[in-house]
Write a protein that binds this DNA or RNA. Structure first.
Lengths: 146, 146
DNA sequence: TTGACAATGAGAATCGTTATCATGATACTG
DNA sequence: CAGTATCATGATAACGATTCTCATTGTCAA
């Protein structure tokens, strides 16, 4: 099985940060790459089974985040959900289901993203706030729970 | 000291929900009303001191939320932050400081809010998602931490 | 191989939050 | 206005997600 570009980019990034790309870390990255939205540590643990103990999952996620490979978001019920960083997957937003708590990535058209960006710089300027990023969470019911 | 409109609206709402508007609950509402952004239970506890024990703060917040008087958001470090519901304070968004973790409310011009709303209904339609609400969090550095 | 150091796994510790339960306050009822 | 049902409180225990600790294992470089 030939290594994906994604994998090679991550290898590179970790190498720069003097961090090894071990089996456990690859497993976690693999699960995150397959997912269609951010995953909690518990979800990762369920998927990885006994291959990677929970404590290692947490440590791995923290290491990967320090190296900029993953990012985290805070979801319902105090759960932290992780996903590959945007420089790997592209900028996107989230559809958060208030019913089942699932979170799905959603891309938004460049034109619209542009207008959000403009909006934000206007607001930030008004509040003398130095904006570096933004997150648009759309809450509602997903197709399943509709 | 004459009762504010806000207080009277809350009284009303709690009455409808068969919930008493006790001293402790008034204290919590008072702190939230003064704040310029959502507060965590710990922050409330610090402000209220020994007047309202932490466990009561949590219970109060939960009761107030059930009655629709407060809403909560999830912030950095797994902290839940509470603020008065939007029907009391108006719709607004948040400026989240990645440095100090503070969160400030920010209003956005009606025209812009309109465009965000439009954007969201477009996206939601595409994903067969039934959107009911949205949250735009602007991350960056606040004036203090700039 | 050996030494140095990164990474791991298992469990204990921590921290925010929630539940429990005995006690105190409030509001109906007669 | 005494009795009683119910709600609210405060102290503390319990809980669950996350982080820390530390002894052990794996990896790389000389």
């Amino acid at each position: 099985m030939t290594k994906s570009t994604l994998d090679r980019e991550i290898e590179m990034r970790l190498y720069e940060h003097d961090v090894r790309y071990t089996k456990g870390r690859r497993a976690v990255v693999g699960s995150l790459a397959k997912a269609s939205g951010p995953m909690s540590a518990a979800e990762l643990s369920e998927e990885l089974g006994s291959d990677v103990p929970l404590s290692s999952i947490y440590r791995t996620l923290s290491v990967l985040e320090d190296s900029g490979v993953v990012e985290h978001h805070l979801g319902a019920k105090g759960l932290t959900r992780f996903e590959l960083a945007e420089w790997l997957t592209g900028h996107h937003h989230h559809l958060v289901c208030v019913e089942c708590g699932s979170v799905e990535d959603v891309d938004i058209p460049a034109r619209q993203e542009e207008s959000v960006r403009n909006l934000i710089s206007e607001i930030a300027a008004l509040a003398s706030f130095h904006a570096t990023d933004h997150a648009l969470e759309i809450e509602g019911r997903c197709a399943r729970c509709a």
